[in-house]
Design a protein around this nucleic acid. Structure first.
Length: 257
DNA sequence: AAAATAGCCAACCGCCTCTGG
DNA sequence: TCCAGAGGCGGTTGGCTATTT
């Protein structure tokens, strides 16, 4: 599966990581954090370069990284977001809790690329299934507010503590929420409900809302956009993809076009 | 059963951006 | 303003596994 371990001319180990190396890296970061990737391998007793350690941690060892098969929902989101962002894998991955840019990129190249390149107009099958294929949809972006549990926070996420200042604006997930059907109907989704002066009528959060949260548990509690926000306005990281997907499916079933 | 081919994914490489001096 | 170092990102590769011939 991976390159066999070997040492380069500088004595730096490359190739597949052993369980022992994983343990060393994991325990070091859990104890001291990753304050300097270049120094980290020396301190942790690893013969790896800093970049290699960083990659291993980011793509594999982080506790929030989700391993295993992609769901249909996740595939649909990747297709949609790729349409919107192109090959900006880190941005796409930021909308898929627990998935890394590397995983998303691999998924695209191995499974989804061919689907996306398929010319929908060349199809001779006019069945509903085909006409509603996710690959043939043109989607407009709507916004969904996210309540991200702490174990779902990605380094590249707007909710990362390191980017707290910039995260103080509106937190959104741009998703495939408004497919345009051949019959001309464009369903709209309004996940989140009311609010004023925001994209899609959704409530937003201000920097004050971040700062107002009392206590040291800011990053360990779910984010709530507004004090009086109804409960259904909160969307948790794990539910985002399911929610979008089921909204889409619900609309499609309803349309019967 | 063996060989060939395709699919998959962890890991590497090099470039770009950001940050601090 | 410039420069160097560090981190981040996207493209690519190597090699294992599964499937097909």
């Amino acid at each position: 599966m991976v390159r066999a371990p070997f040492h380069d001319k500088n004595g730096v180990k490359k190739g597949a990581w052993s369980a022992e190396e994983d343990d060393k890296l994991r325990s070091y970061i859990e104890r001291f954090g990753h304050w300097n990737w270049r120094e980290l391998p020396k301190q942790a007793g690893l013969q790896r370069c800093g970049k290699s350690c960083r990659l291993r941690w980011m793509n594999y060892l982080r506790p929030e990284v989700k391993h295993g098969n992609f769901t249909e929902q996740e595939d649909a989101l990747i297709l949609k977001l790729h349409e919107e962002y192109g090959n900006r894998w880190s941005m796409i991955a930021a909308s898929l809790p627990g998935r890394t840019d590397n995983e998303v990129k691999n998924r695209w190249h191995t499974r989804l690329k061919a689907c996306a390149n398929r010319d929908p107009m060349s199809s001779t099958d006019n069945s509903q299934t085909e006409s509603l294929s996710i690959h043939s949809l043109e989607c407009e972006a709507e916004s969904i507010h996210i309540v991200m549990p702490p174990n779902m926070i990605l380094e590249s996420s707007a909710l990362s503590p390191t980017t707290k200042a910039t995260a103080a604006s509106t937190v959104k997930l741009y998703a495939a929420t408004s497919p345009v059907f051949d019959c001309g109907y464009t369903p709209s989704f309004n996940i989140g409900g009311g609010g004023t002066g925001n994209v899609g009528g959704l409530p937003s959060c201000s920097s004050a809302m971040y700062e107002d949260r009392s206590g040291g548990d800011f990053w360990s509690e779910p984010f709530v956009t507004e004090k009086d926000l109804p409960l259904h306005n909160e969307i948790y990281g794990d539910d985002i993809v399911d929610l979008v997907f089921h909204q889409m499916m619900h609309e499609w079933e309803y349309l019967d076009c």
